[in-house]
């Protein structure tokens, strides 16, 4: 195999620089040769070369499903990539407890909720419940944390009220439903409200959900964001390292 050029990286199939890409999509075009040709033309417009339609299926009602392979001539300069990553180190539960014992004279108060219309508590429960996720204990299992989970469909107003009453150090917001980007507007509204109430600086705001990332969270005015597959210890480790001593 020839040497990989990090300044000109192409997609990889089985030979360096072969640029192999696979796509699958449906078109509102009746099944037939026209549908396949439409798929090929669409791929060329995406900048792909030599599109091959390997599978086409008649979905009925004038729709066709297609599986296409093509070659992408485009390259990426991987020496110039800029991504937003969390600056904190990843720690295990024992190390987190030890660090917290040094830094804090009391337990940190963590308030969690699914906000807006979102009724999907799977994510927030996985992070907060003692049981945790994938063998990694949830925040309730940490001695250094005092956790309150408000559950589903909490309004931003109520979340901030509860945060005042609980004297929360950290607010965790889960958003799973993302249809028409409702999660973004809802999260941004929370930060606006916190700023209007003058509490933005007092509390660490963290959001999580399958379509969220640290970068998106920062864009929305949060202190951190966690995406799919996040373990509770990653969240606990972040907040214990990020919060100043108290």
């Amino acid at each position: 195999m020839s040497a990989i050029d990090p300044k000109h990286v192409r997609a990889y199939g089985d030979t360096l620089n072969d640029g192999q890409i696979m796509l699958s999509f449906s078109l509102p075009v009746p099944f037939g040769e026209e549908a396949k040709e439409a798929a090929r033309q669409l791929c060329r417009q995406m900048g792909l070369e030599a599109p091959q339609v390997y599978h086409a299926h008649d979905l009925g009602e004038g729709f066709t499903y297609l599986v296409v392979y093509a070659r992408s001539p485009h390259t990426v300069d991987t020496t110039q990539l800029r991504v937003t990553k969390m600056a904190t180190a990843q720690l295990g539960k024992d190390a987190i407890e030890a660090l917290a014992a040094q830094k804090f004279t009391r337990r940190l108060r963590v308030l969690g909720a699914c906000t807006g219309d979102d009724a999907h508590t799977v994510g927030i429960d996985a992070i907060l419940n003692v049981k945790g996720y994938n063998g990694d204990k949830g925040l309730e299992a940490y001695h250094c944390l005092s956790v309150k989970n408000l559950g589903a469909q909490v309004t931003n107003e109520r979340l901030l009220q509860e945060a005042r009453a609980f004297q929360a150090d950290v607010i965790l917001v889960s958003q799973i439903v993302t249809q028409k980007d409702c999660h973004r507007s809802n999260l941004a509204a929370l930060i606006d409200l916190a700023e209007a109430d003058g509490v933005r600086q007092d509390v660490l705001f963290i959001c999580g959900g399958p379509r969220l990332s640290h970068q998106v969270a920062l864009e929305l005015g949060f202190d951190a964001g966690f995406g799919a597959g996040t373990l509770p210890s990653q969240v606990a480790g972040f907040l214990v390292q990020q919060l100043p001593p108290r």
């Binding site: 449906s26 979905l59 499903y65």
Partner: peptide
Amino acid sequence: EAMHTPHIHDRY
């Protein structure tokens, strides 16, 4: 599942 509500071909 866990990504988005089903697309037309997911169901197929």
